[in-house]
Simulated assay, not measured.
Amino acid sequence: MTAAPPLPQPLAAPPLPAPERTKHRLLELLKRHGPQTVQDLAGHLGMSVPGARRHLGDLQDQGLVEARTERPGGRGRPQHVFLLTDRGEAAFPKTYSTLCVDVLRHVQALYGEGAVLQVLDARSAELAGRLQTDLPATLPLEERVQRLGAWLMGAGFDAVVEPGEGGAHYIVKRNCPNLTVARQYPELCLSELHMFVEVLGVPVTRETRIACGQGSCRYRIGP
């Protein structure tokens, strides 16, 4: 009886190219040690200062790293240091969604069904207060909707603004960075809807919702 041929072994993931490995190590050093000078980073990696500077320039272009000037220990000669941006921080694993779900579960258990919405509405009201500075009621509605869409885009929602019939506008969010929480607590989406109404001062209707399995969160603004 002929022996069966051996099963093929799974292919290992190809190693990162050397320049990408170097960039990854730079990000790890900044994550572990905080702001560093280019000389410090080059020394950690055993490479030249110009070489480290080139990689840091690429990371700056990608929005992962930024530079600033500071005095060591609060005194001495100013020096340029590099640090992670918010986007660079987001490249590392986080457990925020798990923590948020756990906190909301305890809020609900301790204070009852309506407590979760009450907490999230308080958060939304605070956000609305900040946004209203940039979206004053004196501006035309279309411009306020555009500014709200831009803010959502910056917050990671991949939002676009689309025109509608009868003078209405649409905000379409094609990503939900809070999806894990929203699937378990629909109050999060409801409080967001309340925030849109408060900020824009007109009726807002949600037509679709990512957390329900649809492709986007689609909000109709206006009549």
Results as ranks from 00 to 15, higher is better:
residue 130 R to Y: 15
residue 189 C to Q: 05
residue 130 R to K: 13
residue 175 N to C: 10
residue 171 I to L: 15
residue 215 G to I: 07
residue 221 I to K: 01
residue 36 Q to A: 15
residue 146 Q to A: 15
residue 159 A to F: 01
residue 26 L to R: 04
residue 63 G to N: 01
residue 177 P to G: 10
residue 70 E to F: 09
residue 109 A to T: 09
residue 211 A to F: 13
residue 92 F to W: 05
residue 201 G to T: 09
residue 195 M to C: 09
residue 82 F to R: 03
residue 84 L to D: 02
residue 127 L to Y: 03
residue 131 L to I: 00
residue 110 L to K: 13
residue 5 P to Y: 05
residue 40 D to F: 11
residue 8 P to L: 13
residue 32 R to N: 14
residue 157 F to I: 05
residue 73 G to W: 09
residue 70 E to D: 10
residue 187 E to T: 03
residue 137 A to G: 00
residue 125 A to N: 14
residue 28 E to I: 12
residue 72 P to L: 11
residue 184 Q to L: 15
residue 150 A to R: 08
residue 159 A to K: 06
residue 218 R to D: 10
residue 26 L to N: 01
residue 147 R to F: 11
residue 131 L to C: 00
residue 196 F to V: 02
residue 94 K to Y: 01
residue 109 A to D: 14
residue 96 Y to K: 06
residue 31 K to V: 11
residue 39 Q to F: 11
residue 148 L to N: 06
residue 113 E to F: 09
residue 89 E to D: 09
residue 181 V to K: 06
residue 39 Q to D: 03
residue 134 D to M: 06
residue 117 L to F: 12
residue 69 T to R: 08
residue 82 F to V: 09
residue 79 Q to A: 13
residue 175 N to H: 15
residue 83 L to A: 14
residue 46 G to L: 03
residue 153 M to P: 00
residue 130 R to F: 13
residue 114 G to A: 07
residue 92 F to L: 11
residue 22 T to F: 07
residue 132 Q to G: 01
residue 110 L to R: 15
residue 196 F to Q: 06
residue 42 A to T: 02
residue 115 A to K: 04
residue 39 Q to M: 03
residue 154 G to D: 12
residue 68 R to M: 12
residue 27 L to Q: 01
residue 208 T to I: 00
residue 223 P to V: 02
residue 146 Q to G: 11
residue 206 R to C: 09
residue 77 R to M: 04
residue 48 S to H: 08
residue 77 R to G: 00
residue 85 T to C: 03
residue 135 L to Q: 01
residue 60 Q to L: 04
residue 191 S to R: 01
residue 156 G to D: 07
residue 13 A to N: 10
residue 181 V to A: 09
residue 4 A to R: 10
residue 117 L to A: 11
residue 185 Y to V: 10
residue 58 D to G: 02
residue 188 L to T: 08
residue 195 M to L: 15
residue 139 L to Y: 01
residue 169 H to N: 03
